[in-house]
Computed example of a mutant assay.
Amino acid sequence: MELLDQEQRDFLCSGVSISLAACGDDRDNCVIRAVGCKFVDDGRRIAVFLRHSRSPDFFRFVQATGRIANVFCLPSTNRTIQIKGDDVRVEAFPAADLALIEGHLALFLKQVVPLGVPESVARTIFAYDPADLVMLSYVPNAVFTQTPGPKAGELLGRAA
Rank of each mutant, 00 (worst) to 15 (best):
R45V: 15
A47M: 03
D28T: 15
A127F: 10
N70M: 11
R123P: 08
Q63G: 11
P75M: 12
Q111M: 02
A92S: 13
A131K: 09
V113L: 06
K110F: 05
D97K: 13
Q82E: 07
V31F: 01
C30R: 06
N70E: 02
I46E: 00
R27Q: 11
D132Y: 03
P56M: 02
L107S: 13
P130C: 14
A21C: 10
R44D: 09
F59W: 10
A69Y: 04
D28I: 10
A21Q: 01
C23A: 13
L98M: 10
A47F: 02
V117K: 04
L109Q: 04
G85T: 07
T124K: 14
T124A: 15
I125S: 07
K38F: 03
V112Y: 01
D86T: 04
L115G: 03
I101A: 09
D42W: 08
R51S: 12
G43M: 12
Q82Y: 02
P94N: 03
P75S: 00
Y128A: 12
V48A: 14
V62C: 08
H52L: 15
L109K: 13
K38D: 11
A34M: 09
C37S: 13
L107R: 15
F59S: 10
R79G: 00
L98N: 09
V71T: 14
A99N: 02
Y128G: 09
C37I: 07
R45P: 07
R33C: 12
F39P: 04
A106C: 08
D25N: 05
G66W: 01
A122I: 12
R89L: 11
I68G: 00
A99Y: 01
A22Q: 02
K38T: 15
G103K: 12
P94D: 01
A47H: 00
A47G: 14
D87I: 08
G24I: 08
R89P: 02
R54H: 15
Q111V: 11
C30M: 04
R33W: 13
F93D: 02
A64L: 09
P114H: 05
L98Y: 06
P130L: 12
D28S: 14
A69Q: 01
V112A: 03
V134L: 07
A127R: 15
K110V: 09
A34Q: 05
N70F: 09
L74V: 06
D129L: 12
F58M: 12
F72A: 00
R67L: 07
S53Y: 06
F39D: 00
L105A: 08
D129M: 06
A96L: 05
G116H: 08
F72W: 09
V113I: 05
P118V: 14
C30L: 03
G103R: 05
V134C: 05
L109M: 01
R51N: 11
A131P: 02
S120I: 15
D42T: 11
V90E: 04
F59P: 11
I46K: 07
N78E: 08
L100Y: 07
F61Q: 06
M135F: 06
G24A: 15
F39W: 08
V88C: 14
D57K: 15
R51F: 10
